[in-house]
Nucleic acid binder design. Structure first.
Lengths: 200, 200
DNA sequence: TCTGGCGTACTGGTATACCAAAGCACGTGT
DNA sequence: ACACGTGCTTTGGTATACCAGTACGCCAGA
């Protein structure tokens, strides 16, 4: 299942592409059964859509879908950042600095794909320690959706990577200083900015 | 799949009960394959847990799981109520009044199972029209988890059905008056009260 | 030439058969 | 009597075979 998932998120399978069970089965060297099960699991995660008697396809995401996803992030992630700051500060700060460092390098190299990956890792470091696995799973799912959307999506405004990096640095500074509430507010402002880029 | 799901949520299958594929298959008059697919889908919904090479079992929920679920509700549902009030007021108010009426009757009859069902329907009416399917799905999932937890769970304080009803009525009054912000705040207070009953 | 209906190929859905791993019980040895 | 090991049974995992529904193309008729 992991291989289908990564193929989708890496953009090797474009949104709307039909996922033919037999074809995937022979490509992966297994039979239909595990492929089918993987597709069902991925449908549960929201990455593929299954139509009765018409099979599975890579999920097509609309601008509205992405807006919805960012709305969820706006509700959950600032809270999660605050909780992570209080509960798992030491563990989170290392991962966050690593991710931000990678982002800085890829930013200078104008290397957008690994930059996006690093940015996602930064966000994950900020919320993974919040202590609520339901929230973590939902934010992971929403990030997957956003990644999938980025393959296709026409943003109203193309992202300013420098601004994004600066905001991340600002969040992390507050986080490092133990200012949970400030980090939370900075994260909210950051996500709001992304939402605005979508024309919300 | 619906039959397994409802059997779990109705408490006919207790948390921890092993879900043996062959057994379920013959009980439902189908083969292993669709049963297995249903179990995978239910695992995605968080109602069953699957251990590699050890099969599926009805999910066991801890007090902490329920606390996590209510935390998510606290983050999402007040917002959703406010949005429903603004976007889908007419559609929601009918369903909410119906559910609250049923709750009142079952409250007087001390009929707890349908009362819980009516209460859940009330909440759903309040958030279903929020316009964000991601939020609706997540709140549905969280409600399933809470229902599953209610089978087993020892709450610190048993619920005061009368107080719950009064709070629902209060929320609906604000909702009817078009006071979206007030309804949202009332919902937040209501969920906080439930969280307090868990000893949070 | 365009349209409607029929047939065929394709593909998802389900059943069945087979294999491998885990759990349990029984027996044996100390 | 207890503990360890071995074999049997149970059960999940995968492959394969079969069936049914859908879509697409081709042919015929207007």
């Amino acid at each position: 299942m992991a291989s289908i998932r990564s193929a989708i998120l890496a953009g090797h399978l474009a949104p709307g592409d039909p996922l033919v069970e037999r074809r995937l089965a022979e490509q992966l060297g297994v039979s239909k059964t595990p492929v089918r099960e993987a597709l069902i699991a991925l449908a549960g995660a929201g990455l593929v859509t299954v139509s009765p008697n018409r099979g599975a396809a890579v999920r097509e995401v609309s601008t509205q879908d992405i807006r919805d996803a960012y709305e969820v992030r706006l509700l959950l992630e600032p809270w999660a950042v605050g909780r992570t700051a209080r509960l798992a500060h030491a563990a989170a700060t290392g991962a966050a600095h690593t991710a931000l460092g990678k982002a800085k390098r890829h930013l200078h190299a104008r290397d957008h794909v690994p930059l996006s990956l690093a940015n996602r890792a930064f966000h994950r470091a900020m919320y993974a320690g919040c202590g609520n696995p339901l929230v973590v799973d939902e934010l992971d799912a929403v990030a997957d959706l956003a990644t999938l959307g980025a393959v296709t999506l026409i943003w109203e405004q193309s992202p300013s990577w420098e601004a994004e990096y600066a905001q991340h640095a600002e969040i992390l500074a507050a986080f490092d200083a133990g200012e949970a509430e400030l980090a939370s507010r900075a994260m909210r402002a950051h996500i709001r900015a992304s939402l605005r880029r979508l024309g919300a």
